[in-house]
Design a protein around this nucleic acid. Structure first.
Lengths: 144, 144
DNA sequence: TTATTAATTTGTAATCATTACAAGTTGATA
DNA sequence: TATCAACTTGTAATGATTACAAATTAATAA
C-alpha cells in the first residue's frame, strides 16, 4: 500500500501534476478503498478529514488522474461512474443484488482479434453482471 | 432483416408485451440501424415518420425491450447509453475520433474464469477503446 | 525565507440524460 | 364492439456532471 502510494507520487511529479493536498487525499482514498468507489463515496469518505473539500474538486481530480493514466474509469452502469486505482489487466463483475463490484483475473490481451488488426487499441474492458456467490446463497436460504 | 423482425414480433407475443405502433417502429429502427444508436438518434430518426412520438416512449420502450432480452444496452461511455438489437456474442470497439462503435467477433464464453465459479453470470460485455483504422490513416495524412 | 505567478480549489449555477407522474389514448380480449 | 388494463404523452423533477469566476495555494526563483 505504502509502496503503491509512493509510486503514484513519483508518477505525478514526472507528469508535472501538482501534488495538492486534495489530490493526495483522493489518491490515498483510492489506494485504501479498492472497492471501485463512486464520486459520492469518495467525497463522503474524505469530508470529515478534509472539510473544505468540494465535490467539483473530486471530479476535477479524478479526471486529471484518469488522463494521466493513474486511475481507470469503470462504467458498467450508465448512471454511476466508478474509479479504480488498479490499472492492471483484470475484469469486473457487478452483483445486481448487493451492487458490489468484484475483480477477477482475465488475460484480456489474449483475444486481440484479427478483425481489429489495423486499429489502435488503447483500453480494454471486460464487464460481467449477475449475482455473486454470497447473494446466491442468501436467496436460497430465504426460499426455505 | 425481414426475418429478424418477424422473430422479434413472435418473441413479443410470447412474452405478452403489447405490439403497439411505437414499439414496432422502435424495433424496426433498431433492426435497420445496427450502428448502436442513442435514444436521441432513435427519437430523431423516427420523428418524421411518427410525429406524435414522445422521447419518454422511446425510453420506456427500450427499457421494456431490454428487460425482455430483445435488446442489449451498451454503456461504454458514462454519458451516453446505446442500444443494440444484436444480442449475440460479440465485442464493441469505440473510436475516440469518429465516435463510431464497431462490432468484433469474440468468444466471450471461452474465459469463464474459475474465480467466478459460484457466481451466476447473466451478462458479459467486452468494450475496447482507441482509434479505428480509418481515423488512424487520416491522422497520418494530416501530418504530411 | 519570501515573493511571484500560474495552477488549483471552491461554491454556485447551468446542463444534460433519464425518470416520475397523471391524464388521455389504445391494443387485446371476450 | 365494448371494456379495461396497459401504453403513450408532455411536463416537471431528479441527479450526475460540467462551466465559470473569485479566492487560494504549490512550486519556482531571488
Amino acid at each position: 500500500m505504502k509502496l503503491k502510494f509512493e509510486e503514484l507520487l513519483t508518477e505525478l511529479k514526472v507528469k508535472k501534476i501538482r501534488l495538492s493536498h486534495q489530490r493526495l487525499k483522493v489518491l490515498e482514498y483510492l489506494v485504501h478503498n479498492q472497492c471501485h468507489p463512486t464520486v459520492e463515496q469518495i467525497y463522503n469518505g474524505l469530508h470529515k478529514e478534509v472539510p473544505t473539500l468540494s465535490k467539483t474538486t473530486v471530479y476535477n481530480t479524478l479526471n486529471t488522474l484518469t488522463e494521466a493514466g493513474l486511475v481507470r474509469v469503470i462504467t458498467i452502469e450508465d448512471n454511476e461512474t466508478r474509479y479504480d486505482i488498479n490499472t492492471g489487466n483484470h475484469g469486473h463483475f457487478k452483483c445486481e443484488i448487493c451492487k458490489n463490484i468484484f475483480d477477477f483475473n482475465i488475460d484480456i490481451d489474449s483475444f486481440d482479434s484479427g478483425e481489429l488488426k489495423n486499429f489502435e487499441i488503447k483500453d480494454k474492458n471486460v464487464y460481467f453482471k449477475g449475482v455473486c456467490s454470497k447473494c446466491l446463497s442468501n436467496t436460497k436460504t430465504n426460499h426455505c
